[in-house]
């Protein structure tokens, strides 16, 4: 079959659109741009906008907490209350899911939650860069968590950790079917964990990008409509940013709990 005429027509239209009208490119702001190429011994540690915003997130999280706790009082002020609420929130999450043995993971999970949360939120500032919209960033975090869960499982249970893939109370005849499924679902964990966060951020920002494009290019008579939507959607994104950070963290807790206590 030859669809070349369609493509040709499309290409032609694309050319005219590209030359005459402003081009809609909602994926533009996910572009990672290297500001400074640093590759000592072929090891890539270049500074890009993504890296810059990671630093900003680190600075913002640390700065806010330091500001909130600069002179802690027994009766807390507003900012201190918020900081304490965040502390107790993460603590409660760990306690609910992992239990008392989850205490030693508290700093890591606390950091994870606030790193992801503030990555999601700082990305909403116009002109900024959303670190968590990068698959490789969420993938790195997810892989660290995945590796940690395997190491913890091996540390706590040794070879018995392989029993993780054998569901309880299963007739032996079903084992050849179920064990591969369990293994695949286990391996899918880091993928789903990272893709969920990255896709949420990407989709939300893409929608915002499209709406802003319309707001900027349409005449004022209709531009108020997409503009109103951007307002609503930004609020929605703030909410989603929190929910996704929460889910990322809570699933981390679940995975760690599975490794420590098995099921």
């Amino acid at each position: 079959m030859n669809f070349s005429f369609v493509a040709e027509a499309y290409a032609e239209t694309a050319q005219t659109v590209a030359t005459t009208a402003p081009k809609m490119d909602p994926l533009h702001h996910f572009q990672v741009i290297n500001y400074l190429k640093i590759t000592p011994f072929g090891f890539d540690m270049s500074i890009s906008n993504s890296v810059l915003w990671m630093w900003i997130v680190v600075g913002v999280v640390y700065g806010l907490f330091r500001l909130a706790m600069r002179n802690p009082t027994l009766v807390p002020g507003r900012l201190q209350s918020v900081a304490e609420a965040g502390y107790l929130f993460v603590q409660g999450m760990i306690h609910d899911i992992i239990g008392p043995s989850g205490k030693k993971f508290f700093p890591a999970i606390f950091t994870l939650f606030f790193f992801v949360l503030f990555s999601n939120w700082t990305g909403l500032i116009p002109g900024s860069f959303t670190v968590t919209s990068q698959l490789i960033v969420t993938g790195t975090l997810a892989l660290i968590i995945f590796a940690l869960s395997i190491v913890l499982g091996a540390y706590h249970h040794g070879w018995k950790f392989l029993g993780f893939f054998v569901p309880h109370g299963l007739p032996p005849a079903l084992l050849p079917l179920m064990v591969p499924i369990e293994i695949i679902s286990f391996l899918a964990r880091p993928v789903s964990l990272s893709v969920r966060l990255f896709a949420n951020m990407t989709a939300g920002h893409t929608v915002l990008g499209v709406l802003f494009f319309f707001t900027a290019t349409l005449t004022w008579a209709v531009a108020w409509l997409p503009f109103g939507f951007t307002v609503v959607f930004t609020a929605m994104e703030i909410f989603i940013g929190f929910i996704q950070a929460y889910i990322f963290t809570i699933l981390t807790c679940v995975y760690i709990n599975d490794s420590i206590h098995m099921h």
Binding site: A199, T202, I247
Partner: peptide, 11 residues
């Protein structure tokens, strides 16, 4: 939480 999970499936 469930809504976020379902939404992620769509994404």
């Amino acid at each position: 939480i469930g809504a976020a999970f379902v939404e992620a499936i769509a994404l």
